[in-house]
Computed example of a mutant assay.
Amino acid sequence: MLDQIATVADDLTEPHMHSESITGWDRNRHRKTRRWTTVQPGLLAQLHQSVIPVWSTPDDFGASSVPASRPPLAVEALSRHDEIAMAVLRWCTSMGLETRVSVESNVRALVGATPKLDEETAAALLDEMRQWRRWCLVLTGWEQLYCPAGVPCPIVGCGMRNSLRINLTNATALCRACGSTWTKDAEDDAGAIGVLADYIKQRTDRTAA
């Protein structure tokens, strides 16, 4: 369990290499494919960066920079980042840890203190950290974010309409009202992205009919 906590913490806080193939035309009008490798920040930093517009970098084929397709202010991303930061502070306080400047530093402090936790408390921390990671995964893909109009959240006790946010890039979803998440590797059917997709299809088909 300690290894799992450390792995999730790394996803949230540590930079990683990302590579993708980019095809385009060079200045001599020759079609070329090149491998573009970048260093991506941790998910918490990505979530914070998604709050404001960013500009894409120039490519290797001479194209000029263009604005990324993000909203002027991603209020949901800001709200979730603040919610995660407060939850991390709560954990630090409950474990008697000295709080630090950044949320990333506080997450790392939690990892360092986890060997002192009993199994039940460590499991609760792991569950909450996985929730933070799922929120980040959903809300850092604004270019491919789908919001099914008029579809209520399927969670009993929620049912809020227009609250579902689906990241089509990495097949994750979030209800902005109750915080429930859906992923490809969910441990139960209720949290599976495929189950949510079927539900949305049934609701939209019913509306269209």
Rank of each mutant, 00 (worst) to 15 (best):
M1N: 06
L2C: 02
L2F: 04
Q4G: 05
Q4D: 14
I5K: 05
T7E: 13
V8C: 08
L12V: 10
L12C: 11
T13W: 03
M17I: 13
S19H: 14
E20Q: 14
E20A: 13
G24P: 06
D26R: 03
D26M: 02
R27V: 14
R34M: 15
W36S: 01
G42P: 05
G42L: 06
L44E: 05
H48Q: 04
H48N: 03
V51S: 02
S56M: 03
S65A: 10
A68Q: 00
R70K: 09
P71H: 02
L73E: 12
A74C: 01
H81S: 14
H81F: 13
I84R: 02
A85F: 06
A87L: 05
A87M: 01
V88T: 12
L89N: 10
T93D: 13
E104Q: 14
E104N: 13
E104V: 05
S105P: 07
N106P: 01
N106L: 07
L110C: 04
G112P: 02
T114H: 03
P115L: 07
L117C: 07
A124W: 03
L125W: 11
E128I: 06
W132F: 15
C136D: 10
L137C: 12
L139W: 08
T140K: 11
Q144P: 01
P148R: 08
P152N: 04
C153A: 06
C158D: 07
M160I: 12
N162I: 05
N167I: 06
T169G: 09
A173P: 04
L174K: 08
R176A: 15
A177G: 07
W182P: 03
K184I: 07
A186V: 07
D188V: 15
D189C: 01
A190I: 06
G191C: 03
A192N: 14
G194L: 07
L196T: 00
Q202G: 06
T207Q: 12
A208P: 05
A209T: 12
A209Y: 09
